[in-house]
Design a binder for these strands. Sequence first.
DNA 1: GCCATAGTTTGATCTAGATCAATATTCTCC
DNA 2: GGAGAATATTGATCTAGATCAAACTATGGC
Lengths: 245, 245
Amino acid sequence: MSKNAQSSAKSCSNSKQVGCDDCSLNTICMPVSLHVDDIDRLDSIIQRSKPLQKGEFLFRANDPFTSVYAVRSGALKTQLVAENGDEQITGFYLPGEVLGMDGLANNTHTNSVQALETSSVCKIPFERLEELSVTLPTLQRHFLQLMSREITQEQQIVGLLNKKNAESRIASVLLSIAKRNSQRHLSESAFMLPMSRKDLGNFLGLTTETVSRVFSRLQKNGLIAVEQKQVTLLDTPALTLLVAG
Amino acid sequence: MSKNAQSSAKSCSNSKQVGCDDCSLNTICMPVSLHVDDIDRLDSIIQRSKPLQKGEFLFRANDPFTSVYAVRSGALKTQLVAENGDEQITGFYLPGEVLGMDGLANNTHTNSVQALETSSVCKIPFERLEELSVTLPTLQRHFLQLMSREITQEQQIVGLLNKKNAESRIASVLLSIAKRNSQRHLSESAFMLPMSRKDLGNFLGLTTETVSRVFSRLQKNGLIAVEQKQVTLLDTPALTLLVAG
DNA sequence: GCCATAGTTTGATCTAGATCAATATTCTCC
DNA sequence: GGAGAATATTGATCTAGATCAAACTATGGC
């Protein structure tokens, strides 16, 4: 059994055939109070396909927009590619999180989405979702909220990049992952980073070397323990203070 | 007549009582094909109030979310305020542009919005808009697109901050304003910057000094002419190249 | 018109993080 | 299991832009 398959099996708490109503992630991706038969209707439009292997693309920039996607297991990164070829990672997506709304503006995706490890997603065709939304106002509102949250998150990142040094930025990402893990009832103090130092640096506007140095320094100062991709937060209050500072 | 009143009268091509159907900005803020009576229905929910003076707030962070707003004249800035007090400007909004969608996520605004000069806005109560959207799917879709565009714009800014130097960032903002002016059939090579050097620096993650120096350098190299807030783009291709480089 | 205040410009110096470079470690695939 | 390729760490040096400092200029209030 490969390492990827292991980690996939571990992070995917649902078997392939499970529906939304049985999915342990439904409180994250669809935290709306829907009737049982409404959930069934939602469930009926959702397509589940075979998992993406590490490095595989879910879709690419300029692909036509058809659907949004909920992550079921694994982890993915979204990225923009500039004309000159250099890439900007715009986000990391963990189980329960929804991505793909970038494609709505022009019916074409601006981001490419790539699996960081073996990952599976639920594909939600947008036209079907829109039809469903007409009779389910709370579902409609939920999607507006998801998008609004995406906007405010991006704005937070802009603030992070403009106002914070390398240590704050790294601390912020670590705490963000911790928080999202705790929402999935996983450990919020010990976890596997799904992305490389390079990806993390790209996302945060830092070089690989700086990311590595900051990890070493945080470890030396007893705020975290790092062993390859395994990270343990040893002093969350200090990390929180770092982010604020 | 004050300078502000002049610039307001100039940039506001609509008198106070004009409706959406007569508003010269409707191709920007509501570029959806609506029937005449649908426009009237939209028009009927929109509230127009007295202009904001420079420095006045449209709303503040933590205010309850009730409405989104279309800029009719003037210019506004949106900003986040961190716990430690420092501010991050998240956007500048010009006539025809819609703001306030940040409040949808938690029914509370995360941004504060402040007038950079005398400005008037159309207030669009969101609940009324939602009701209207049920029977006007194109209106619904339009709002999703507005929000999607906001997400991709923020992502572009993240890329700008992470990958580009001071000159590129400034050039990028100048070209952005030029483009938005041209959409309003104003000059795209000569315009008044509505924001201070400080605001521009805050937005772009630069100090006032650096903004000032870059302006001087771009002027010395013949790419722009600057006289206080009046900017003239003298070599748009070179500026475009700067942004790409 | 005059003053106070805020905003802008320009110069000198400093520094966080980039860049360059070398080594070490971990994956990958035969 | 081993060769080669990624990926990560650590060190030395360099630099874009910050910071500190000092004029200079526009602007709003009286």
